[in-house]
């Protein structure tokens, strides 16, 4: 009934999972910074890489620190988190995709200005 948990006796040893997870996280963080700011590759590639690193680090935390698979509820916990991630990806990518069509129109271009419209004087303070 206790499922995949381990007894307190097993915790007498050195917390390897935590140290390894921690070091990997630091490495991934530093690598991500270096690639984003220092590397000489295209923006698109950089985006894929840094987000890839982010997801890897997230899973490191989930499995190694948060004991997500542990206990009789492990499957539910994993499934729940995966569905959350599924929804997250749909909402973010879906929203960006939907609004991509609107960016191409003049008034909705990136800085909120239409090139042909007269420049307004004060726009910053509401």
């Amino acid at each position: 009934m206790a499922g995949k948990t381990h007894s307190s006796a097993e915790h007498e040893h050195f917390p390897w999972k935590h140290v390894v997870g921690f070091i990997l996280s630091i490495v991934l963080t530093i690598l991500a910074f270096w690639i984003a700011i220092g590397a000489e590759i295209g923006s698109s590639a950089k985006l894929w890489i840094i987000f890839g690193f982010a997801f890897i680090q997230a899973f490191l935390q989930l499995f190694m620190f948060m004991h997500m698979t542990e206990s009789e509820n492990g499957t539910v916990q994993v499934g729940n988190t995966l569905f959350g991630l599924f929804c997250a990806i749909i909402f973010v990518i879906g929203s960006v995709w939907i609004f991509a069509a609107h960016y191409s129109h003049g008034e909705n271009s990136k800085d909120g200005y239409s090139p042909s419209a007269p420049k307004q004087s004060e726009h910053s303070e509401k």
Binding site: S95, D111, G112, H123, S124, K126
Partner: peptide, 18 residues
């Protein structure tokens, strides 16, 4: 979601219906 300062009114509709 404002008309000024770069807001996007349609973003409200998007989030509301999600």
């Amino acid at each position: 979601f404002t008309l000024e300062a770069g807001g996007m009114p349609m973003l409200w509709a998007n989030l509301f219906w999600i």
